[in-house]
Design a protein around this nucleic acid. Sequence first.
RNA 1: GGGCGGUUAGCUCAGCCGGUAGAGCGCCUGCUUUACACGCAGGAUGUCGGCGGUUCGAACCCGUCACCGCCCA
Length: 887
Amino acid sequence: MLDKTYRPSEVEPKHYEQWEKSGAFAARTDSNRSPYTIMMPPPNVTGSLHMGHALTFTLQDVLVRYHRMAGRDALWQPGTDHAGIATQMVVERQLEAQGVTRHDLGRDKFIERVWDWKAESGGTITRQLRRLGASPDWAKERFTMDEGLSDAVRKVFVTLYKQGLIYRDKRLVNWDPKLHTAISDLEVEQREVKGHMWHFKYPVEGEEGVFITVATTRPETMLGDSAVAVHPEDERYAALVGKMVRLPIVGRLIPIVADEYSDPTKGTGAVKITPAHDFNDFEVGKRHDLPQINIFDRDAKLNDAVPEDYRGMDRYDARKKIIAAMEELELLDKVEPNPHTVPYGDRSGVVIEPWLTDQWYVDAPTLAKPALEAVETGKTKFHPKHWENTYYEWMRNIQPWCVSRQIWWGHQVPAWYGPDGHVFVEEQEAEALAAAAAHYGKAVELTRDTDVLDTWFSSALWPFSTLGWPQETPELKRYYPTDVLVTGFDIIFFWVARMMMMGLHFMGDVPFKDIYIHALVRDEKGQKMSKSKGNVIDPLVLMDKFGCDAVRFTLAALAAQGRDIKLAENRVEGYRNFATKLWNAARFCQMNECAPVDGFAPDAVKEIVNRWVVGKVAETADKVAQALAGYRYDAAANAAYQFVWGTFCDWYLEFAKPIFGGTDEAAKAETRATAAWVLDSILHILHPFMPFITEELWSQMGNRDTQLMLRPWPVLPGLHDGAAEEEMDWVVRMISTIRAVRSEMNVPPSAQVELLATGLTAAKGEWAKTHADLINRLARLAVLETAADPQRVAQAFSHGAAQMVVDEATLVLPLAGIIDVDKERARLEKEIVRVESEVAKVDKKFANPDFVARAAPEVVEENRERRDEWMAAKTKLQEALQRLSGA
RNA sequence: GGGCGGUUAGCUCAGCCGGUAGAGCGCCUGCUUUACACGCAGGAUGUCGGCGGUUCGAACCCGUCACCGCCCA
């Protein structure tokens, strides 16, 4: 016997362990089923489960579990990435606590410490994924720093280098002066700040008392100025173009150049040009062949390229000093408040400095072309579709991808330098040495490049490196390209685009056929969750409180396409209640001896209620499957919810009660078997969403030798029975109508009244007889007269009665002593008004001659029928009102 | 400035091909109906953001405006 309530904390670990141990998650290369593959976007090895993870992994698990049941050989490839900077920072912070820096340890020892840390703490997120019920093939778990994945990284780097698609270049990068590394554009956060615009007067050389005024938000960079630019069509400055100015403080002579970059409407229309410290100025500098004067060191302190007084100063101290000096020189024209954006490193939180360095670049513009084409031609499809615009936008404007990072934790660049700086790019040192020997004609010593590669470089290879590439493994052959990538929009640039480029280049095919982009989880007020706001909802806490299944179901039910998820705890509570409801329904079945019957054939049931419900099961299984095929998680979850609660519990089980309590043994046996079958089907349908409770009920509701998670998805053609549906819909309509009138007329629930039906068609009279037990029980009637004697009806009226219309029939509820005649009259009048308004709506359509002439005939016909029905109802209600008044 | 998304019941949101506006929560009323009060039954609530257009017919299609959110510059 099932416990009184479902206790998730006792059930969840048990089933998870069984699934994992029994190999139920494993994909099988030798399977004859067609593969279904999802690459799990690898969470950071430093990570722990947050709501975003809970959403994305729930959605992936729903797909994987569903497709596994639907007969596919499902591979959900798990793993984590090494998260270069993040991980390095974690370990550095630990060292800091012991008063040690990574430089004290040295590179090798430090890397060892990181691996130690990974072994100890790196498994947090994968443990938490198990808590969530995720069903990836854990045996295949990979890590971006694995040997195999590292081989892939080296192979890709060397191949691209030899193809001319990776090169070394000196360009401006986003330099993080705290972390001492280049970071990607995407790791730079543009923050709006209330800054100032300083207007500096630069004296024009050779023209006493003539100045050109430039406006800048970064006064300190003037020490690196190499020109002043004005717009070529700006007449104010036309005469000055070609002249020189004497840069204050520094004393350097710099030219005034004409360049369209200068915006005549902004500031003074003249702009100082610092090619080594601003991305736009860098371009201007190249156009005018200006010197690039680097004035900062790696800490963003001033270097020896500036006047002695300023050397070694911090950039912000220098700013103050410059402003003071300019004021002193009477060259500070004015200062205006100026809100503008400033780049911050999203990891370090410090202001990023554009800095000239030598870095490794991937020729992204070249690789992007096939990646763009793959989406344009529909080889890979975005869901929802509009995200392809974001992808196009990014891919069409893609810049060379700087892949080197000046940190230690990551894949070290496979490049070695000879004594003269000549570079040898090879997968192994031995090969580099050999290449060098060939180049120099003798063996030489080489030094390896100290940089490591951007983490996204290795994650870009994830869809094939995890399958064994560059080895030609059976997995690679079978599971690439994958079916779908499920992820948030925030990493379309970071990751999706890069996997597309690498996949196409190295595998010759797209890495996935579909890309499902889901929303962000926000708090109930729609704000982004953040630690600083304190509005973070921890999925683990929610799971403790409501059970994992409730959390999963909530996330799926709220995952409507194109909208963020506002998560409120009461939603989770509601779906916990749903789990309880299911549990209790199963208990009810158990108490009534509804056990699964071997060889039960749902298409052979005879009782109308049973024929009706099996049809609904088929319909629901179908709806859920179709919704999932279109990534409509919300629709899938709601279809299941509505059937389980609104049809199975609210109606079918209630219909079953009088049968169970009755004397028709054949009907009883059939209904028991049907109820058990329906419940089993429900468990199948809900399993992808609620794996734990369904597996538990599956194991408790019968003698099973299989796990639910490996059972086939219900595909049930031919079960829909239109006649049964029409009949049961009528029964439901009867009961609902009677209940509503009882409630409105304040008939006590305990009062068992009789019902006199008149005007039933012959067919419905039969239905009424067949289902009298059901109707009586659910509408709380003592007797149902299916063809009431007119005299009885008249008599009923003389003592007071309520009346209602169901289709063509009038139902009379004798309520002697209970009924308030005025109230009943008012109720009927209100009902008539409502019906009249329905008639009026249809009449309005017919009043327009074009409607009949131009609308589709079936629409016209449908409206005509509807009008007839409403009119008939109106007539009956009016008769009822008259009878009441005559009584 | 460019792009995308949103605006439907008190709240959160569905509403696929244009043809009778829905759900959950909340609210109100009643109920120890032997599965379930994490429940049952019943009920109220809408200028589908504004304006214009297309159409026999618009929550839905088109245009425009307003407001909110996000991304990019």
